[in-house]
Each structure stands twice: as structure tokens, then as C-alpha cells.
Amino acid sequence: MINGISNFVGYYIYSDDEIYIPEGMRNTINVIDKDGKIHRKIVYDKTTQGKSTIPFNCLSFPYTPIYMINGKMYLPQSPNMGLGDRIVEDSPVTLILDSIKHSLTEFELRFPKVRSSVELRGNTLGIEMSYSQVYDGKNFIYSFFFDENLYIVSPDGKVRNQVKTRSKYVDEIYNEKKVPGDITELVRTLCTIPMYGNLIYDKYRDVYYRFVYPETKLENDNYMDIWQLGRTKFSILILDKNFEILGETLFPENIYASNLFFIRKDGLYISTSFFKNPTFSDDKLCFRRFDLIQTKK
């Protein structure tokens, strides 16, 4: 296949004639035009620090898009299982691909030790190292699912700050060592354990929204649909430009699909197309706008 691309799940549109599609099984990024013709391929296989890299996918859940800043492409990574006994300590969270110098450098930020390198090679839920990433025009901010802290990193990869942003609805992050072997029970666990989720930057109001998933009880439900759409119960932490907590809103259960959202100048939109919502319809994808309002103390 001359213009064929192997497995991929995400993309980045820089312009009509410059669309970036990373392959999921190879360290290759395809650059195509609006007609689907491949103009070039970018191969990234080893950093200037000498580490081998792994293929990545720009997913919406976790929210890890590709960013292009001043000719540099920022590539999200997962823990590199090929790093021996130091998977967590040696795996950079993001790589910087310089499209002009053709160099590949590592972010200083490594994965937090919510699971040891030994445990990562064993029986895990598969999301312990998942994270959400945003760029606010000055810094990259990271929200790890199993960590109450936010990490602020400059575009050159240096860690600037670590800020605790604990939800009032999560007393303790899930830390059980035993993972269900049955796939149905595993997905049910993913839908019920306390954890953090996507981080969004609202450039119009200069605030951040961090999704939070409190512990939830479910019985005999469609767990996979719940997981894909964003759980039955969630809250949103609202943070100012200095990452101070302005407030937290707990949303009604079974109404919103928290994985479907976008920001516009007039507010934050979250989808109401959650399959347990009484108004749900397969024929419509619906959203509701939320306004940020300062309450009196």
C-alpha cells in the first residue's frame, strides 16, 4: 500500500495539507494532506539521551493530544517496559521532536511512583500510569489518574512546580494490589474506584477544569459503555491561573458523558448523551453549556 497507514487512533491537524497521524505499532508519524496522500514520514526511535522510544497514540481519554510549538512536536509517552527494572524512574512522560534539527529529547518529568516498576510488569488495571495533558500557552500541565498532584512543566521539559489539588469527594486514591482476573470484574472496577481524570484549560476564562471520579457503587450494569463515556458519577475541580482551587461541582449521576466535552468562548460544553440519561437518543449527540459564575462567600 503506497498510501497505507497501519493501526492508529488519533491525529493532529496543523493545516489542510499538513495532517499528522502517528502509528500505534511503529515509531512513525505520517504527514498527509486533505486528500489522504502521504507526503512524508517522521521516524522517532531514540532520544539524544540514548533511550529507545515507544509508539504513542493521541487519545481523547486520557486527553493527550499532539502539540506543535515553534517547530517542535510534543509526543506523549507511556511507561517504557523495555527499560529493565527502572520503568517508572527512567520513562519520560513526553518527548520533544524538533522538526528542524531532527532531534528527539526527553522531558525531565517521569511517571509518579503510584506503582513500582516490578508491579507494572505484573497484574495491573492498565490505567495506573494514565494521565491527561494540556498546554496553556506557557506551560504543560499534567493530571495523573492516580495522583492528586498537578505537575507544571516548561516547554523545554523542565519541571517548574508540583501542586496538590485534592478533591473533597476523594479521600484516598485506589491502591489495591490485587487486580480482578475476570474482564467483566476488571471493567467494573475501572467504573467504580476513586480516581482523577481529564484536565482542561479554558483560555477564555484563564482557569483549569479537572475531572474527578469519586468511589461509586454499581451492580449488573453495562460497564464497558460506562467506562467509554466517562463513569456515572463525577465532579469538576475549578482552578485559577495559579492552580488555587476556586470550587468543585458534583454533577448529577447518569446524565452526562464526561469524556465528551469542548470549550467555546461562551462556556464549557459537556455531552448529555449518556446512555443512562432518560433523554438519551442514538440519533442525537447533545451537549449542555456551563457558565463559570463567582459565588458570594
Rank of each mutant, 00 (worst) to 15 (best):
V153P: 00
V153N: 08
V153A: 07
S154R: 11
P155W: 00
P155R: 01
P155L: 00
P155Y: 00
P155E: 00
D156Y: 06
G157N: 03
G157R: 00
G157I: 01
G157L: 02
K158Y: 09
K158R: 13
V159C: 10
R160W: 02
R160C: 08
N161P: 05
N161L: 06
V163I: 14
K164I: 11
K164T: 12
R166F: 02
S167L: 04
S167Q: 00
K168A: 04
V170Y: 01
D171H: 13
D171P: 07
E172K: 05
I173Q: 07
I173V: 15
Y174P: 05
Y174N: 06
N175Q: 06
N175H: 10
K177W: 00
K177Q: 11
K177D: 14
V179W: 07
V179S: 07
P180E: 08
G181T: 13
D182P: 05
I183R: 15
I183M: 12
I183E: 10
E185Q: 11
L186W: 15
V187M: 14
V187I: 15
R188F: 04
R188G: 01
T189G: 11
L190S: 07
L190G: 08
T192W: 11
I193A: 07
M195F: 11
M195K: 15
M195P: 00
M195T: 12
Y196R: 10
Y196V: 03
G197D: 06
G197Y: 01
G197M: 06
N198Y: 05
N198E: 07
L199G: 04
I200H: 01
D202N: 12
K203Y: 05
K203Q: 13
Y204W: 13
R205S: 11
R205C: 00
R205Q: 10
R205H: 14
D206N: 15
D206Y: 03
V207F: 09
V207M: 03
Y208K: 04
Y208A: 01
Y208T: 05
Y209M: 05
F211H: 02
V212I: 14
V212S: 07
V212G: 02
V212R: 02
V212Y: 02
Y213R: 13
E215I: 02
E215G: 13
T216P: 03
K217S: 15
L218C: 04
L218K: 08
E219I: 11
E219F: 12
E219T: 14
N220C: 07
D221F: 07
D221N: 14
N222K: 07
N222V: 08
N222T: 10
Y223I: 07
M224N: 06
M224Q: 12
D225F: 10
I226D: 10
I226Y: 06
W227V: 09
Q228A: 13
Q228C: 11
G230N: 08
G230Q: 05
R231Y: 13
R231L: 13
R231C: 12
R231W: 09
T232M: 14
T232R: 15
K233C: 08
F234I: 01
F234W: 01
S235H: 05
S235C: 05
S235F: 01
L237S: 12
L237C: 09
I238E: 09
I238A: 09
L239T: 02
L239Q: 03
